[in-house]
Structure formats: C-alpha cells, structure tokens
Design a protein around this nucleic acid. Structure first.
Length: 291
DNA sequence: ATTCCAACCTGATAGC
DNA sequence: TGCTATCAGGTTGGAA
C-alpha cells in the first residue's frame, strides 16, 4: 500500500478538493477494525465542518477541521482517498472491470469497501475513503490532541539526515532494512522504497545494521531522497492496489529497479534479482551489485 | 532492550 | 473449471 510518495501524491491532489467546502452529509460503513473512533461519532463530528488543511506525517494524513478537531487517516495496505470526479477503473476488481464497457467505467459507485464518503453543501465532488483489507485506520482527535502514533514518528524520510541514520544503525544487529522500515527512525519508508534505496546504495537488505559504513549510509540517504522524490514526481507506484486520487495510475513502478522483479535481470549487471525474507518482509536485491 | 510473530482483513494469482 | 495455498505496499502488542 501507500508509502510516503503515494500518501504525498494523495495529499496534494485531495487537499484542494477539500478546502473551504462545508460537509453536509457523511456516510460510513459499520464499526470495524478500521474505525478507531466509532463511525457514528465521526459522522456527527464531521457534519457541518470544513477542512482547513490536509497534512502528511510520514504515511499518515491529518485533516485539520475548522473547529480544530482533526481526522487522522492511515491508508494501511489498500487504502485509497480520492474524489468522485476522479473515478478510476482500478477501483473495481479486475474481473468486474473487464465486464464493463469503457463508458460504464467512469462513475465510481461506493461499494462495501468504501468506509467514508463526504458529501458537501455545494453539491460538488464527493470525497471517498476506501480500504479493502481494512488495515487502515480512521481516528478523530480533539483540538491540540496528538495521537501516540504520530508522537512516535521520526523525522520525515524526505529530509533524511545521514548522521541520524548512521546513529540509528550503530550497535544494532538487526538487518539494515529493519532500520529503514522503523517509523520512529524515519517516517514514511515502506517495503518498496527500502528495497530500491538499498539497491542504489549497493547494500543487501539483510546486512547487519552495525556493519553498514558511514559512506554507505550517505549513499543510502541519497538513494532514499532520490527514490522518494522521483516517485512523487511520477505520481507514485501502482503495483497492486494503489491508485492516485486523480485516477491515473502512478508511473513509478516502471522505474523500479529491484522491487517485485524476482528473476529479472539487474539493470546494472544483468544478474537475476533475488528475493528473500528479511525482517519478515519480502526483500529484493541484486546478489552481485549489493553486498 | 531487541527481535520475532501472530493478528487485523480481502483479493489476486499460481499451481495442481 | 475449480479448489487450495501463497502472497500482498503496514502496524501493533505481547511473547520469546
């Protein structure tokens, strides 16, 4: 699901759709794992409010309301935040999609996975939050309240600092990839971009963090910055469930060097990309270019 | 103090 | 065709 670039692309596209529009009606699904705050409270609280701004903290989105309450959104693995003028065929299952004629694919119809729909007084575009697996989270926070999950986040991965990264690696016998995925060290890096940055740095994901040199940390930091920035530029990765709020698929997956390319030739040396479990996550690397 | 691991869900796909 | 097993971009809380 969405990592930093996908969440940032979502934020940039959805914020202008939200700003200055009064919410008239809120539709939710039933209480579930997804709703940290019960859906009836969310409906009641959002009704009549407007969103002042949409912030991103790591992989979290935070909608700040005009009454200073805040709606915290995590997209989990399959979460999608988008609006009705940006329908996308990708929102349907592939089988359901192929059954539709192109002209019938345009209008998004809320389904059982659409856990939140915001309708506005102006009658304009509806904003939807959809999450098939319900690993995402929706929580309402009071004015000035900080959710413990946000409090634990490290600095944003776009501003990765070499010294900080290197310090986090010292004395840790855990794989370097586990450090990159640790949101309290760096906020926003997930499985795809961890693998991509490790490739650019020439470091295997399973290497002990304490064995990563300062020089390699510099390459890792640069790799992370490059990969995250470039992905935001191209609209994020759309490997499985992610679809940008505009409905266009992100294009970054075409630039992936190793992620989900098991068996394909390494773009640098041609060796077959390997896959193995590191830190309980599927990890991809070139056995020749990465040590 | 770290590291591991199951759990939260549903859907797509590979293999038989 | 259809069934089963495996795999998914995340995070947590508790066990080891």
């Amino acid at each position: 699901m969405p990592e930093l670039p996908e969440v940032e692309v979502t934020r940039r596209q959805v914020e202008p759709v939200l700003l200055g529009r009064r919410i008239e009606k809120v539709v939710t699904t039933s209480p579930s794992y997804f709703f940290v705050t019960p859906p009836d409270r969310i409906r009641e609280r959002l009704c009549g409010r407007a969103v002042d701004r949409l912030e991103r903290h790591g992989k979290y989105l935070l909608a700040v309301l005009d009454d200073r309450h805040q709606l915290l959104i995590h997209l989990g693995m399959t979460g999608q935040l988008f609006c009705s003028i940006a329908q996308s065929p990708r929102l349907l299952s592939s089988t359901a999609r192929t059954a539709l004629r192109p002209e019938a694919q345009r209008e998004f119809e809320p389904d059982r996975h659409t856990h939140l729909a915001l309708h506005f007084e102006d009658g304009g575009p509806v904003v939807y939050l959809r999450d098939v697996r319900k690993f995402g989270k929706l929580a309402l926070l009071g004015p000035g309240e900080q959710h413990p999950r946000l409090a634990r986040l490290g600095p944003d991965a776009l501003e990765v600092d070499v010294d900080l990264l290197f310090a986090a690696m010292r004395k840790r016998k855990t794989p370097v990839k586990a450090i990159l995925l640790d949101q309290s060290v760096l906020a926003g890096v997930g499985n795809i971009y961890a693998d991509e940055a490790l490739f650019l740095a020439g470091v295997r994901p399973g290497r002990r963090a304490s064995r990563v040199t300062r020089r390699e940390c510099e390459r890792l930091a640069a790799g992370l910055r490059d990969v995250l920035r470039r992905s935001i530029e191209t609209g994020g990765s759309s490997i499985r469930d992610y679809v940008s709020p505009s409905g266009a698929d992100g294009a970054y997956q075409d630039e992936r060097r190793v992620y989900a390319r098991t068996g394909e030739p390494c773009p640098q040396c041609g060796s077959a990309i390997k896959r193995r479990l590191v830190a309980q996550r599927g990890s991809h690397y070139c056995p020749n270019c990465q040590s």
